[in-house]
Amino acid sequence: MENLKQELKAKIIENLNLEDFKVEDIDDNDSLFGDGLGLDSIDALELIVMLDKDYGIKISDPKKGKTIFESIQTMAQFIMDNKTK
């Protein structure tokens, strides 16, 4: 789980081009959207594709992203519970 969280942080910075952030800047419980990392609905779509491509999890309703991507913690937990690869 700890490895997965580090992996997610690195991927988010890389995929979403968050040049101003480093892995150690992101706390497990920081909110990814709004005041925290400042991600938006387009980023949520990017993350949905990442879940599919890297962990074999398909999400068909983009609204579900809101709860899954609340923080690195919730995201990692969701992946642990649902991953198929």
Binding site: I42, V49, D52, K53
Partner: peptide, 9 residues
Amino acid sequence: QYLTPTAFI
């Protein structure tokens, strides 16, 4: 497959 929206937008 596995396409993301940012470049399209």
